[in-house]
């Protein structure tokens, strides 16, 4: 089965979701991310969903639980690039993903991760990312 690639950048993991995800692919991603965070000691996870045309409750739940699991493993999660139509639909669906941090694009997402990690550690963001 196909898997979504996870890239490592500094102490952050970067995932770009580019396909209309089938449920098993989403579950595999959650598992893979958990393993990689533990293996690499990553402090941040950035998930770029700018290519996704829909996020239903299943994908929404996956994002929520990735954020929750990462938190337990001491990593912050930022979801970036959600499209307006997707955001409106998710809200209408009743999902607001309150546990997930968001940013407009990858650049801002990385900056946000940098701040959060630095904030938690008392480092300068530049040292980490």
């Amino acid at each position: 089965m196909d898997r979504i690639p996870i890239l490592k950048m500094g102490s952050a993991l970067l995932v770009t979701i580019q396909v209309d995800m089938q449920d098993r692919l989403a579950m595999a991603l959650e598992e893979d991310l958990t393993t990689r965070i533990a293996q690499t000691g990553a402090r941040g996870v950035l998930i770029d969903i700018s290519s996704l045309e829909i996020v239903d409750s299943f994908i929404g739940r996956m994002l929520d639980s990735i954020a929750a699991v990462s938190r337990l493993l001491d990593a912050r999660t930022v979801v970036v690039g959600m499209r307006p139509a997707v955001a409106i639909t998710l809200v209408e669906l009743g999902l607001t993903l309150t546990g997930v941090a968001t940013a407009l694009d990858v650049e801002r997402g990385m900056a946000l991760l940098g701040e959060r990690i630095a904030g938690a550690e008392g480092f300068d963001a530049g040292d980490i990312l």
Binding site: D23, E53, I54, V55, D56, S57, F58, P84, A85, V86, I88, T89, E92, L93
Partner: peptide, 17 residues
């Protein structure tokens, strides 16, 4: 429209699951 498309596709996805 794009928003309406997204809404009906998402609704269909929910019910299909």
């Amino acid at each position: 429209g794009l928003v309406d498309q997204t809404k009906i596709v998402t609704a269909a996805s929910e019910i299909a699951r």
